[in-house]
Amino acid sequence: MSALERAEIQRLREGSPWTGLWAVVAKEMADHLTSARMRILELLILLTAGGTVYVAMQQIRASIGSDRFIYLKLFTLSQDPLPSLIGFLGFLVPLIAIALGFDAVNGEFNRKTLSRILAQPIYRDALLSGKFLAGLFTLALVFSAIWLLIFGMGLIGLGVAPNSEEVGRLLWFLLATIFYGGIWLVLAQMFSVVFRQPATAALAAIATWLFFTVFWNILASLLAQSLRPIQYGFLQEALAQAELELALTRISPNTLYAEIAIALLNPTVRSLGFVLPFQLEGAILGTPLPLHQSVLLIWPHLTGLIAATILLFALAYVLFQRQEIRA
């Protein structure tokens, strides 16, 4: 059957690809929320969030009244040897997301439930997207709970309520965190289609994360140096090289998330990337940006994360469609 005929059949197929979607979402979410795996992860993130926020509060108490953004500090302050909460989130979010996705499809396969489920009047689309949405909703639920916990700790520990600017920034950051989880979730799910063994899929997802965390920045710098070498020592050359390096590092979702965190949680950050002196003309250094300006700053990052997620989902979808479902 040619690709064209295949496309024709796809176009002509009856009914909605979403039939059964919500049944899948409900079942998968119930599974996630009751699984031992999730309990462990929830405990882990509860301890880290509680611990780092507590430590941050100790430092903040002194500056209550003088600082407009103490709630943001709860996320960003660190004290040796503990990293800040955003430092922890940088690897806890991928960990949780991968844990929710790495056995999505191969798990059904190994339990011999896949052919039984796909023999019901639903399309494969519904199963895959149902599993993705269930994972995303679970992430949203878990992180919203953590955010609420932090607000609660702040109210009790600091004795002041967050101002609307802080709430707005933290809600945007929550959204970004959920989407950051989404990309690792969809990556893990894609590997769960590719690899029959859940352990292999988990390992592949973790290896990808490790690659972007540890090696990608080094690689980006090496690539930039060889592609845009500094031959004559001109400023333009150095700039071109640095810009390429920055662009390359932004392929990594970790970089995108880190920059989002910086822009949202440090209102004084006016630009992500290089700032030349003339660009700052007229700006009063040290004055915080209004929220909508910060959001504009991270907008490309956020859409980039979402676009990459959609791309990976499409890839997983194509791979899943082609898969033989027999055991």
């Binding site: 059949i9 339990r111 039984r116 639903i122």
Partner: peptide, 23 residues
């Protein structure tokens, strides 16, 4: 079944050679 899989699957029950459930 290639064009109207949902209708077919709604009226046909299938017991695979290896029947698995959520244990």
């Amino acid at each position: 079944p290639t064009r109207q899989p949902l209708t077919v699957k709604a009226h046909v029950g299938y017991l695979p050679d290896q029947v698995g459930f959520y244990d």
